[in-house]
Write a protein that binds this DNA or RNA. Structure first.
Ligand SMILES: [Mn+2]
Ligand SMILES: [Mn+2]
Ligand SMILES: [Zn+2]
Ligand SMILES: [Zn+2]
Lengths: 142, 142
DNA sequence: ATCTACATTATAATAATTCTAAACTGTTGA
DNA sequence: TCAACAGTTTAGAATTATTATAATGTAGAT
């Protein structure tokens, strides 16, 4: 989503009413240089730091899912108890640091294109994603 | 885990007491020809079908996690609200059918080995897993 | 301005997972 | 033999993550 822009217009274009909750969330999510990864709880914390009134947790879920459906957020699968979201909606792979529980984007040329030789009859491929789990090198050292 | 075997011995070898709950769970999980994927709820259903007394949900979680730690179960990441587990503990990739919410194993030669060119300093790679999401071909057809 | 239909919010409910107190079991030593 | 004790295991209670829905808000239509 375009940075430093009137999110009111932008939300209207998407068919979403530009409520104060949504505009604030868009500012927190998209008014920045780099894309980033977050959990719902991270986001709630970020919002409350920038805002006096608090947005209800359910509304944060609602809006995140609305923006996901419109293609402005992506959900990332991790072996974990909570969902991660990504403001980088391009097709890309991830490193997951099991020590810090942080996601790191894989650049296009960090991993060669994946060639899938099998195909499931009647099904088409929607996405191909690689997850590389990493952890501290000196975990079990002598 | 070896099929058609005395799970009592086997559990003892792992340092787990062979309680009736655990032995029954091992039978349900490992006394079969092929490996399979399941959610905790799937497993509870399978157990109650084969057993009169029911095992508490917390115990199912405990035992699944114990077997996972011992390397006899693997957790699989999916964009979803529940965890999937796999009795196939080898390194392998998956197709995920978004229509039926079923996991399908990728054979070794369905996907070429993934070459990771980037490395995170001080971190070692623990796993590299590909998830291929598929869905019905004629979803949005004219 | 008022009505109406739909969109949105946020509380209440549910589902998934974990915590922990009570029950169990294996070991030790009288 | 068999308490006493120290883990271990179970499962009900508690917590956390997510969703359902009742209440509230809003954009036309009249
Ligand atoms: Mn989602
Ligand atoms: Mn786990
Ligand atoms: Zn990313
Ligand atoms: Zn598998």
């Amino acid at each position: 989503m375009v940075k430093n822009r009137n999110f009111i217009e932008k939300l209207r274009e998407l068919g979403l009413r530009p409520t104060k909750q949504r505009v604030k969330m868009c500012e927190v999510l998209f008014n920045r240089e780099k894309t980033f990864h977050f959990t719902i709880n991270d986001l709630v914390k970020m919002i409350s730091e920038e805002m006096n009134e608090k947005i209800s947790l359910a509304t944060v879920y609602n809006t995140v899912h609305a923006l996901e459906k419109k293609g402005y957020l992506k959900e990332i699968s991790i072996n974990s108890d909570k969902s991660y979201f990504d403001t980088n909606t391009s097709v890309h792979h991830h490193f997951y640091d099991e020590d810090t529980q942080e996601l790191i984007d894989c650049d296009g040329n960090d991993i060669d294109p994946i060639n899938i030789k099998k195909n499931i009859t009647g099904k088409k491929i929607n996405s191909v994603e690689v997850l590389v789990k990493v952890a501290s090198d000196n975990q079990n050292q002598k």
